[in-house]
Simulated scan of single mutants.
Amino acid sequence: MSPKKLVSGAMSADIDREGQRTTAAPLGHALLEVAESDERLVGLSADLAKYTDLHVFRDAMPDRFYQVGMAEMALVGAATGLAQEGFIPFASTYSVFATRRAYDFICLDVAERSLNVNMVCALPGLTTGYGPSHQATEDIAILRGMPNMTIVDPCDAIDIVQATPQLAAYDGPTYMRVLRGRVPVVLDEYDYAFELGRAKVVRPGNEVLIVSTGLMTERALDAAKELAGDGIDVSVLHCPTLKPFDTETVLAEIAEDRLVLTAENHTVIGGLFGAVAEAMATRGVTKRIHPVALPDEFLDAGALPTLYDRYGVSTAKIVERVKGLLA
């Protein structure tokens, strides 16, 4: 039998595996639930509601949805005006378009005034094979230096559903990297609940620690299960909030005598690895940390499974990396 061909549509943003438990459009349904109890919540899109899952909200509450067209700066401007009038806007587009095209508007219109504008953006990191024009591999690095900005990188549908009402209630600007379409359900198997600003150990282990964020937490957990079969005990610390960073929890876990890796769906520069290194340097913690991250380069276009392996962020590559470091 020939090996299974690794394929995906280049613009595919569904990251689920065959047979995996998923939730369809968790962001859209979570927004709708919040909106039913809070009439201040409104949705906006830059012509991408269908591809960021806001179509669920749009179709159910058309009078509270605003379509601004392919104009990301106008999207942020409209959200700013709505926030100033007491509404709670959730503005959606692709991560690359928000952070690259509309940065100045987010910075000066939203963040400087610390307005409750929530940017919910799809195609974070390597979740599309469409190439550098759509792969937001540096979005966290772009926004981490922005004062007042809160950054959330959810692992799965559980994270998205639980984070959405907390972002709506938070008094300030937020940015969430949205997983859309059929989103895996992972964290309900663990004693976990999303808490804005907090990192949590979702799997304990004595030999290796993987500090992870976003969809890489699922791969870290899968790698931990596989490594357990070889007698390697792996702990996974999930950091869904990258700013503000839960320095206390992360450094307490790093202090234990274990091999430590970070894992993120983002360039190795300016994301989770950078946040961990900064926290360690500030507190005078000296320990080697091994990053699993996307390289500091523009990535290729192609089928996602192939790209995950090529850039070292697949479950198999995490397993390989851990074994190599322990050898």
Rank of each mutant, 00 (worst) to 15 (best):
V56E: 05
I232G: 03
H134E: 08
T286Y: 09
D16H: 14
A275N: 12
V110E: 10
V211D: 05
C121Y: 02
Y94F: 15
D153C: 13
A228P: 03
A316K: 15
F90V: 00
L196Q: 07
C121G: 01
E39Y: 11
A60N: 09
L41Q: 05
P244Q: 09
Y192M: 09
T174H: 04
G270S: 11
G172W: 08
A252D: 13
A91P: 02
T306E: 12
V234N: 08
K287H: 06
P62K: 14
L251W: 09
T128W: 03
R177Q: 11
G312A: 06
S8G: 05
R198W: 02
T247V: 14
F245W: 11
L209G: 05
D296Y: 06
T286G: 02
E207Y: 01
E253V: 02
I158C: 14
G214I: 03
Y175Q: 04
S235G: 15
V285W: 03
P62C: 10
C107S: 13
T262I: 03
N118H: 14
L54R: 02
A83L: 00
A25H: 14
T217R: 09
S37H: 14
T262G: 00
A78N: 06
R219A: 03
D139K: 05
T128E: 04
V76A: 09
C121W: 01
A78F: 09
F90G: 01
Q20V: 06
V183Y: 12
V178G: 00
M280C: 11
D230M: 10
F105L: 12
V110I: 15
L215K: 11
C239T: 11
K200G: 06
R58W: 11
G271M: 05
P89D: 01
